[in-house]
């Protein structure tokens, strides 16, 4: 039995399939009508087909109104979106951020000096807003090689390990 999402402020999921993602999302949204999901990704990757199998549109139309899709290509856009979400949310909220590693890489291309600060700012903002009513999940897709962070010369760790070690309460390999 998976622990409820709202019990931890920030969780890292590594390598979930679309089915798993859809199952967790539907589990969260269908358990209470007053819940909303912000799904943030660099591409349009929401597992729609798998989610529709669990929550058909005809019978769960209200649930679909509680899912908001946001596209962010790099960390600064993510920071702006996170700030808006944390200030706007007034009900039980799950923020699911997919492919933050790609956003980080894009931010590195633009400005390699400040990208760590922006990453720190994003994650601290999410932790600051966390409560039983506000939960964050960072999803790292599978089959993608996580590049070691160059900043840490002694112990090279990938971004998911870095966030798992210093920001998240729980990391799950799926």
């Amino acid at each position: 039995m998976d622990p409820p999402l709202e019990s931890t402020p920030l969780t890292v999921w590594r390598g979930p399939t679309r089915d798993t993602l859809a199952a967790r999302i539907s589990q969260f949204l269908l358990s209470d009508t007053n819940r909303e999901l912000y799904y943030i990704d660099v591409t349009d990757s929401f597992p729609l087909q798998q989610f529709q199998e669990r929550a058909p549109l005809n019978s769960h139309r209200a649930v679909y109104d509680h899912i908001k899709i946001i596209a962010c290509l790099e960390l600064r856009e993510l920071l702006q979106s996170v700030l808006k979400i944390t200030r706007a949310s007034d009900q039980s909220t799950l923020v699911m951020i997919n492919s933050i590693d790609t956003m980080f890489a894009n931010a590195q291309y633009r400005d390699s000096q400040t990208c760590y600060d922006v990453l720190n700012e994003v994650l601290l903002e999410l932790r600051w807003a966390s409560s039983p009513q506000f939960t964050t999940v960072l999803v790292f897709p599978r089959n993608r090689e996580q590049q070691p962070l160059k900043r840490r010369k002694t112990a090279a760790e990938s971004l998911d390990e870095f966030i798992g070690n210093y920001y998240a309460e729980r990391s799950e390999q799926m």
């Binding site: 679909y64 899709i69 946001i70 706007a88």
Partner: peptide, 12 residues
């Protein structure tokens, strides 16, 4: 509003 509603994306 932040983001696009999924219901809007799939019914439009």
């Amino acid at each position: 509003m932040v983001g696009v509603l999924l219901s809007q994306l799939i019914t439009d």
